[in-house]
Write a protein that binds this DNA or RNA. Structure first.
Length: 500
RNA sequence: GCGCCUGUAGCUCAGGGGACAGAGCAACGGCCUUCUAAGCCGUGGGUCAGGGGUUCGAAUCCCCUCAGGCGCGCCA
């Protein structure tokens, strides 16, 4: 799991320009920023956009700053490096809250520093995959010819890879990067430890600084299959990258380059207004309003998590007033993470998500807490039974493994079998989910399973059941449900709270 | 203009050749002395955008139309 850091792009350049032109500040002031640095930059970024609108001539600064960033020269480059590093730290902090961890952070600046592009360029030239234009508008550019209906709308039927001024485009860099991912580049980064999580997990970073490099790093790159998790708007560029592999003769790797495309999250007009945006009549009629970092319009993950946590805290406190405050906080965290995680996986990935605050902050119905609640109820049965000298979870596991049960032909039995059948469909669902790259299938399955268990739980007592045969069947079913639910939780990254 | 995606209940979404089309939310009505009511049960709500075709059978596959979103740069 790698997270590409675009540290030489316009976003970083604009923040540098914001420090210089709006705040009239530099490195010392940046280092002195005490508030959340990502929030600080989020606001500054929007102010830079406003500045460009008021004074369009300021945009000319960008070219010069970008050049300095690529060359890694001067104070702007130092400031940019500091800004990027600190924002990445913020990002990792946020992701750690929901249990997301990365193995490696490859920096765009390191792709440049390690001259990945130069190597790829040689290969592309030698294999005649790209050729230089000798006349016309594009004289001097190196272009890749592209054919087929996918590329039918490309101007001239060719994509510029190297500009006439000799600089490489984003696609060019991406082809080189993709080659590295498959171990086809005959070059590698230097690696160092970026930071270590409390769980001991090390996040590695690429680096060209010999002092930062460490030899004991895991092997990166050389993948058998590559999933590029990038939003659907980049489908076109991804297709060109894959085409680049093909023309270099790597048909197998091209086939194993998977663009894991997902649609954007947009705001419902109501949510946009809640964020303080004034909408035009026209906008209000739209289904969704696009988020925009440039305009400072969006929902920050930390804010959403904070809101979820506050709400979960309230509800846990109401239900478990005698609990230790620290335990309450842990439960609230687990519930907020479950809520956000489920929200993120419940939708298919090819549809624009309409983000709505009320829906996102709900713990009822098809939500993470609903699933967690079902699991907690199942766990509660075992706790109660064990405390009363009955079978605990371990015993139930043994029964499930060794025991068999037979139930009379009744409607009640039908419902027991139906639960068992659904439990048994887990593997098949995971298979389909992997084949279609739709985690939402696992999510829907887990929700349906929780629903069925909740109905079962309501209707059929386990602990109190006097008939030993029914009781054993229910103990086994409850165990199997819980075990399967935990597997689903594991796949979705949803924590299982001890109680709710 | 060309390409990709989407159109299913008031809203948000599942279902992608096979049974009377499903869920959540919202609305309405029930259910806590019995393993936690973040729950359960019930009611109402649909021209599956429209038209044509293929098929024993179409929300699902094909064609056309309409509507919406996105993409198509010597930006990243």
């Amino acid at each position: 799991m790698q997270n590409y850091i675009d540290d030489t792009g316009v976003q970083v350049a604009d923040i540098v320009i914001g420090f210089r032109e709006i705040l009239h500040q530099g490195m010392n002031e940046a280092q002195a920023v005490r508030e959340k640095f990502d929030y600080f930059c989020w606001d500054l970024y929007a102010r830079v956009t406003e500045m460009y609108e008021r004074q369009p001539e300021k945009q000319q600064l960008r070219t010069a700053v970008l050049k300095r960033l690529e060359e890694r020269e001067g104070e702007d480059a130092m400031l940019a490096a500091y800004v990027a590093r600190r924002i990445v730290d913020c990002h990792l902090d946020t992701m750690a809250r929901i249990g997301v961890r990365y193995d490696l952070l490859p920096w765009e600046s390191d792709i440049l520093a390690h001259r990945f592009w130069e190597r790829a360029f040689d290969r592309l030239k030698k294999s005649r995959a790209i050729e230089q234009v000798t006349s016309g508008d594009r004289k001097g550019c190196w272009v890749m010819a592209l054919e087929g209906p996918r590329f039918a709308d490309l101007k001239e039927g060719e994509k510029i890879i190297v500009r006439s001024n000799g600089t490489v485009t984003y696609v060019g860099k991406d082809i080189a990067y993709q080659l590295w991912k498959f171990g086809l580049l005959d070059a590698d980064f230097g690696y160092g430890r970026f930071r270590e999580g409390p769980d001991g997990h090390v996040v590695w970073t690429t680096t060209d600084d010999p002092l930062e490099q460490q030899r004991d790093h895991p092997s990166f790159g050389g993948a058998a299959r590559v999933y590029n998790v990038i939003d659907v708007r980049q489908a076109y560029l991804q297709a060109i990258v894959v085409e680049g592999l093909k023309v270099l003769g790597y048909a197998d790797q091209a086939a194993r380059s998977i663009h894991f495309a997902y649609e954007m999250v947009a705001l419902t007009p109501g949510s946009a207004e809640r964020l303080g945006v004034t909408l035009s009549e026209e906008d209000r009629k739209r289904a969704t309003i696009e988020m925009s970092g440039r305009r400072g319009l969006g929902v920050k993950a930390d804010d959403l998590l904070d809101a979820l946590e506050r709400q979960a805290l309230e509800e846990v406190t109401v239900r478990n007033p005698d609990l230790d405050p620290r335990e309450i906080r842990d439960l609230a965290r687990a519930i907020s993470v479950g809520a956000l995680r489920y929200l993120m996986v419940k939708y298919t990935r090819n549809r624009v998500l309409a983000f709505d605050f009320d829906e996102a902050l709900s713990f009822d119905g098809e939500t993470g807490p609903y699933l967690q609640y079902a699991a907690v109820r199942a766990g509660g049965i075992f706790q109660k039974m064990a405390a009363a000298g009955g079978p605990d979870e371990k015993t139930a596991a043994v029964w499930a493994l060794e025991g068999s049960f037979d139930l009379p032909r009744t409607d009640a039995a039908e419902e027991h079998w139906a639960l068992l059948t659904l439990i048994a469909r887990f593997r098949e669902t995971v298979r389909q989910s992997v084949d279609s790259l739709e985690l939402s299938q696992v999510a829907k399955y887990a929700f349906n399973l929780a629903q069925r268990f909740n109905a079962f739980y309501h209707k059929y007592p386990v602990m109190q059941e006097p008939d030993a045969r029914w009781k054993k069947a229910r103990v086994i079913l409850t165990y199997l449900f819980l075990a399967q639910m935990r597997r689903a939780f594991d796949l979705m990254g949803i924590p299982e709270p001890a109680r709710m």
